[in-house]
Amino acid sequence: MLKLHYNLEKVSMGLVGAIIAVASVGGLVEIAPLFTIEQTVVIPDDMRPHTPLELAGREIYIREGCYACHSQMVRSLADEVDRYGPYSLSSESAYDHPMLWGSKRTGPDLARLGGKYSDDWHVAHLMDPRAVIPVSIMPAYPWLTRSLDTDLIAENLATLARLGVPYDEAMIDNAMADARAQSQPEADGADGLRDRYGDDITVRAFDGDPSRLTEMDALVAYLQSLGTLTDAAHEMFAEDKP
């Protein structure tokens, strides 16, 4: 072996080839089967993709780096299930490009946040966290009251559709109208939105003002959707209970 290496050290391209070969094994063995073993991700029947407004909110969540302090992955540990809710399933982030599981909890996990607090609470909290929770160390995001930039809203859906997220043509064509409709409960568009994304989605003036579509509308819509795209985790949890 030593003799072999003694000779390998004299051939630079030999070393290059050996490094690439040896370094490739781990990734191939661990990653490739995740795409072929069917049980890795089982998409539940009731699973829906994010609405255009929620997706825009997700882009804001990413833009502001929320993932650096908040995870979206409840681990299968008793205290996490007691604190946050049913542990996360792989299917719940199957449409997430990229996933936002996170790696640090400076703040709490958000995987089961949807429906836990009111819209007003979220708005007040994002405007000034310490107005709601006096010892919070979260920064304030007062600039979220500005208008939502919707230039790429249809292109975002179209791009995700090309990557396999089930957005059909009607969803892409109506993306802009659907985004507005979700924050205007009194307007006509809500029915079409429900037709496309299901009756369970929330249609509300998230920031309290239906006349203007803001970044706050989008982000709160996204936060309220977390953990609500499918009931699979809750159903499995109910079955597990004796």
Partner: peptide, 12 residues
């Protein structure tokens, strides 16, 4: 852009 990977495969 959107990464071509998603969910559990993306995490790995």
């Amino acid at each position: 852009s959107f990464t071509i990977w998603s969910g559990v495969q993306d995490a790995m």
